Structures are given as structure tokens and as C-alpha cells.
Simulated scan of single mutants.
Amino acid sequence: MQTKSQQISDLVTLNEELENYFANTIIPQLFVDSELILRKFTPPAMKQFSLKADFIGRSIMDVHENFRFPTIIENIKTVIATGKILEKEIQTTDMHWFQMNILPYINRRDNKTNGVIITFVDITARVKDLRDQEKLVAEHELLLDSIAHDIKNPILALSLSLSAMKLDVEKKAERLPKLIDAMERSLNNIKNVVEDLVQGHWDKQRNESAEELIDLGNIVDDVRLSIPSLIHESGAIIETDLKATEITFVRRKLRSILYNLVSNAIKYTPKDRKPHVKIHSEKCGDYMLLKVSDNGIGLTEEAKTIIFEKFKRVKTSVEGSGVGLYLVHTIVNNAGGKIEIENNAEVGSAFKIFLKN
């Protein structure tokens, strides 16, 4: 049994280790006790949130504005009351994004929550990267489609015209056959350039877009981070019910499917109501069913016949290019999947995406 002096010595050692940890960690962290008193913070937290040494011992409520996140007090109280970890992405008022983790600090003697440790990981660059990726995906897919279809069609028409001209050439027209031959060579050169360009892009695409085992929850988080302003300004609620979470798919393509469906659901919700988007997944035979439903304007039967066409839009008053659902349809079809639409006009829509798994 330890003597009192040994117990004190052990406590001093533990305190020194804790002090050393807080002094040397490179992550912004706070320690707030169960009375909401700020007990410790790391140097990165001091720098990031403009904290001062004399803040130690003060109520977190006195300095909460430094964190530029309005619900931090409420989140701390929830973790202290429930003893459960809280993880969420937050945007501070200075437009920075953080992965905030609030962990309960459990007193092992009585197994009660004696406070919380809060960790902030700056993910601003990740959010920007996700936005840029979505933009590049749309532009890249559209470029490849234009090359593969729109450019090849007029070349085919020109080729057919040349063939017809050959049939009508009179033998005495000596220069015309040579001219046609020259045009034919040029046409073949154009075909080769287009085919090389398309093939080169697709080969690169295949190399960079290998299928992998993906957690759907991570994709949902990425989508949230891709449209923070849209969610914040509209007050949108995104609800998840993921009964199946793992699928083998190309990550950027799955993200593009969800990104376009969720952003459209928010954009096409009337201004007099808050968007409520539900993301549901479940195993359905050989498929994963991914269902995105909303409380938006709904789709008429006429709208359902055109929404997957390129550059077609249900309402021109809503910001967009008419490419999003076209890309969704193309990605799903190319992957051997299918899309179904459930809706009643004026009360929302539900897109059911079936992806082979």
C-alpha cells in the first residue's frame, strides 16, 4: 500500500506528464472541467483562438466568443451529461473549418464525467479541395463526353458525304479524286487525333479511378463539407439512415452521385420551407440501394423525362448548368446500375440509385 508521500509524488509526476503533453502537442486542445471551467489549453489553441494565460480558471462561457462557434457551450454540456463522444465538422465565424472532437474525461474512481477534452483539427484545405474536385469532375466528364460523342458525329457525317461524292465523280474530273483523297487523309488524321485524345484520357482516368472498398458514411461527410454555404444559408437538415455502409466503387464517382443529388435537393426546395434531405442505404440483392429523398418542389411526369438529359433543367431560375443529373445518370449506367424516381409533384422527390455491390 502506498504511503501518502508516494501518492503525492505519483500525482506530481502525472501532472508533469500532462503539462508536458499539453505544452508539446501540435493540435489545438482544451480541457474544460464539469463546472465549465477552462483548466488547460495547448499552445496551438492559444494561437488559433487568441487565448491568454489568464483565461485559465475562468468559465468557458466568459471566453466562448474566442472560439467563433456559437454552439460550443451546448455541445460541451451534452457530452458532460451523456458521457458520449461528440464528433462534428464545424465552421467558425472566420470561415475556417475544423473537425471538432469532444471527449468525456472520466474520473475512474467514481466513473463520472469530470469534464471534457476538446480537439480541433483544421480541415479548411480539405473542404476547399473537395469543392475543387467536384468542379473538376463535372468539367472532366463533360469534356470527355463532348469529345466522344459531339465531335465524332460530324466527323462521321463528313465521312459519309465523302463516300457519296466518290460515287458521283466523273472520270474526266481528274483533280476531284485527288482532292477527295486529300480530304479523306485529313479526315483520318482528325479521327486519329480524337481517338488518341479520348483513349489517352480514359486510360488515365482508369488508372486514377480504381475501385476500392468505401465507407458510405465518409462519402456523406465529404458531401457535407463540399456544400457548407448552401447548407448554412438554406438551414438545410441532412438526415442519414445507413443500413448498408460498405461498397466497392470509384470514390470520386460515388461522391459525385451524392453531391449532385443532395445539392439539387436543397436548391430545388421552395424558399418558404427548410430543406430536409434524407439519405438512406440498404442491401438489396446484388445491389446497394442508395436513396436520396427531399421535401422540394417534386417532379412532373414531363420533368422526369428530361432531367437526365445534358443541359436540361427543371427550373432555369435555380443556379446550375444542367449537367449534374446527366453525370449521375451516366455514372450509374456505366457502372451497371439503375435509377428510379419516386415522387408526387409539389411534395418532394426521391431518387433511388441501385449500384452493383
Rank of each mutant, 00 (worst) to 15 (best):
M1H: 12
Q2E: 11
T3N: 15
Q7F: 00
D10R: 12
D10P: 01
T13F: 08
T13M: 06
L14N: 11
N15D: 11
E16L: 11
E19S: 15
E19G: 01
F22L: 11
A23Q: 10
T25S: 05
I27K: 05
I27E: 13
P28A: 09
Q29V: 13
Q29W: 01
L30M: 11
I37G: 11
L38I: 02
F41V: 07
P43I: 07
Q48T: 12
Q48P: 01
F49M: 05
L51A: 10
A53D: 14
A53G: 05
D54P: 06
F55I: 00
S59I: 05
I60E: 05
M61T: 06
D62Q: 12
D62G: 05
F67S: 06
P70V: 06
E74A: 05
N75I: 01
I76A: 08
K77V: 13
I80Q: 10
A81S: 14
G83F: 07
I90V: 15
M95E: 13
H96V: 03
W97T: 06
W97H: 15
F98E: 10
P104V: 00
R108D: 12
R109A: 12
T113I: 14
T113R: 01
I123P: 02
I123W: 09
T124S: 15
T124I: 14
V127D: 03
R131C: 07
R131E: 13
E134Q: 15
E134F: 07
K135C: 02
H140E: 04
E141C: 06
L142G: 01
D145A: 14
S146R: 03
H149F: 06
D150N: 06
D150Q: 11
K152E: 13
N153H: 09
A157G: 03
L158Q: 09
L158G: 03
K166C: 02
L167R: 08
D168G: 09
K172F: 03
I180V: 14
E184F: 02
E184C: 01
L187C: 04
N188W: 04
K191G: 02
N192M: 13
E195F: 04
D203K: 14
R206G: 00
N207Q: 07
E208S: 02
S209Q: 08
L213A: 03
I214H: 13
D221H: 00
V223G: 09
I231S: 13
I237F: 10
I237D: 14
L242I: 03
T248L: 04
F249H: 15
K253D: 14
S256W: 06
L258A: 09
N260V: 03
V262G: 04
V262W: 08
S263M: 03
N264D: 13
N264T: 07
I266Q: 08
Y268P: 04
T269C: 06
P270D: 01
R273W: 07
K274T: 11
E282A: 13
Y287D: 15
K291C: 10
S293N: 05
I297Q: 14
I297G: 15
G298E: 04
T300C: 12
F311W: 04
R313I: 08
E319N: 10
S321E: 12
V323W: 08
G324V: 04
L325D: 00
T330F: 05
V332R: 02
E340S: 10
A345D: 10
A345E: 13
E346G: 01
A350F: 05
